[in-house]
Every structure is written in structure tokens, then in C-alpha cells.
Amino acid sequence: MDFFNDGESDKGLLDPNSPKLRGIHRSLRADPLKVVIADEDKLLVDGLSSLLATWEEFELVGVAFTYEDAFALVRRVQPPVVLMGASIKGVPCADAVARICSAYPQTRVMILASMGESGLVLDGLRAGARGFGSREEISGNRLRSLVWALACGDIAFSGSLGTQLQGALLGDGGLSEDYLKNERYIASLDERERSILALLEEGCTNSEISSRLYLSEPTVKKTIGSILRKLHVENRTQAAVLYAKCN
């Protein structure tokens, strides 16, 4: 089930804000669909909360910033859908997903992940999660259709990693061990390191990176050193190649 138009002209798809679509939603459920959000990124949580509040067919029943709090929320309200970050405070989501899915099989978990977290997503899906959404690529309307798909029992993938993840889950070698290892290395980078790594992949010099990110050149140099250590590579060229392979 997908009510999202992706911006393309197609008369067979309903506008996500149409009265007709709202009528379909109301006919499917007498009560709003309960949703829990669990993620360490407060800005993301606030954004998702605001979106859910605009859609009358959903009810946000709680937010959590740790996996323990997420499990407590699920135990208390037993929502049909949980939107969960791929990692919280450096802890991968797989154990939390397995715990929720084992105790409350009627609750379906969708993982929200950033660039470089496909390995964490794959582990979460194997633990029982039913969907995946890319933080960088997902739109509001797409999120709406994904939540409905989960609630209706479908497996919902969104984002450029979807095909690779489905292939890996089907056992066709979609993600190699080296790929997953490199993805975990990239997932260990903080936001500044990821921004600089993306510019390294573009071939930017330290001076150009400094100008584009409004950082001092000593800071850029120091951060690049940190990137090389975390990626287990010897130079910026190897770091750029690794990044390119994972994107």
C-alpha cells in the first residue's frame, strides 16, 4: 500500500492530503493508529512528531530517547508501529528490535537510518524489524505511506539502500562482509567527519573544505586525521575510495 506520488504525474495515485484518502484511512481504522518514536536526535523526533500531528489518522502516544525507555513505552501502550533509530548513543538497534518483536509481535518496527548505517539496518531487519527509512531521503508523504504499509502488515523499504538490503535478506549476496565492515566504520563518524569525508570524495583540498564548511584549516586537518583512524585507512585517497564504494 503506497499513497505517495513522489512528485510524478500519475492520475492513478491519490494526493496524500485529499479528502478521499482521509476517508479511506478512516474506513480502515475506527481509531487513530498509535505510533511511538525512539531516537536520540531531538530535532528528528520533533519533526516527526509535528508531521504525525498533521495527519488525523495517526496518534503519537510517546517518544523515547533510549531503547530502555522505548521498550517501557511499548509495554505500556503496545502501539502498532514504532519508528526507531538505527543506533542510540552508539548502541545498535538489533537487540532492542528483537526484544520488542519477541514480547509484542503485534508491534511493527521501522528503522530510521543515516548514511553509513546499512549494516545496522540489516542487523535490525534480521532481528525482526519490518521496514527501513533513510533520514536523508524520506519525505513527509513517503513517511505517511510507510507507516500505513507497516500497520497493514507489509514490509516497507524506502531509500537507495532498499534494493541492497532486500537482496542481502534474500541471501543473494547483496551486501558483502567487506561492505558491512566499511559501513560500520562510516557509521562511527560524527556529523562533521561525514561532511568532510563527502568533500574528500569530491576531491576538495583542505583549503576548499575549510571555506565550504566554515572551519579553520587546522580543524580540517585534525578531523581528517580522525577520519583516517576510524576508517582504518592510511590516507585521504583511500578514505574517499571507501566512501565512494559505500554510496
Rank of each mutant, 00 (worst) to 15 (best):
E136L: 15
A103N: 10
Y104V: 13
I138W: 05
T107M: 02
G133M: 14
Y104Q: 10
T107H: 01
G124F: 05
S134Q: 12
G133E: 04
A127S: 13
P105H: 12
L120Q: 07
L120F: 13
G128M: 01
L112S: 11
G119H: 12
V109C: 03
F132L: 13
G119T: 07
E136Q: 15
G124T: 06
M115P: 06
I111R: 03
A129R: 00
Q106D: 14
A127D: 02
Y104G: 01
V121R: 01
Y104E: 11
A113P: 03
G133A: 15
V121L: 09
S118V: 15
S134F: 09
F132R: 09
V121P: 03
I111H: 04
E136W: 12
L125D: 00
M110R: 03
V121M: 09
G124M: 06
A129Q: 00
V121F: 07
S102F: 05
E117W: 05
A127V: 02
F132Q: 07
G128E: 00
E117R: 04
G116L: 09
F132C: 10
V121Q: 05
A113G: 11
T107W: 00
E137L: 14
D123F: 07
G116Q: 08
R135S: 08
R130D: 01
A103P: 05
V121I: 14
S102H: 10
S134I: 06
T107K: 02
Q106W: 10
I111F: 09
S139I: 07
S139H: 08
M110I: 14
S134R: 14
S139Y: 08
A127N: 04
I111A: 06
G133V: 14
E117K: 09
G133T: 07
G128A: 03
A103E: 15
F132W: 13
T107L: 02
S102M: 08
F132G: 05
V121T: 08
E117H: 07
A127E: 01
G116A: 11
G133P: 03
M115E: 13
L125F: 05
L112E: 02
L112D: 00
G116Y: 10
L120S: 04
I138M: 15
G124P: 05
L112K: 05
L122G: 03
L125W: 02
M110Q: 09
R108K: 14
R126W: 07
Q106C: 05
S114L: 13
A103F: 04
S134Y: 07
M110W: 05
S114C: 13
G119D: 15
L120N: 07
G119W: 08
V109R: 01
M115F: 15
A127G: 08
R135F: 13
I138D: 02
I138K: 04
S118Y: 08
V121K: 04
L125A: 06
E136N: 13
E117T: 06
M115S: 12
S118M: 13
R130K: 15
R135N: 12
M110N: 02
Y104S: 06
Q106I: 06
G119N: 13
S102N: 11
S118T: 14
G128V: 00
I111D: 02
R126I: 06
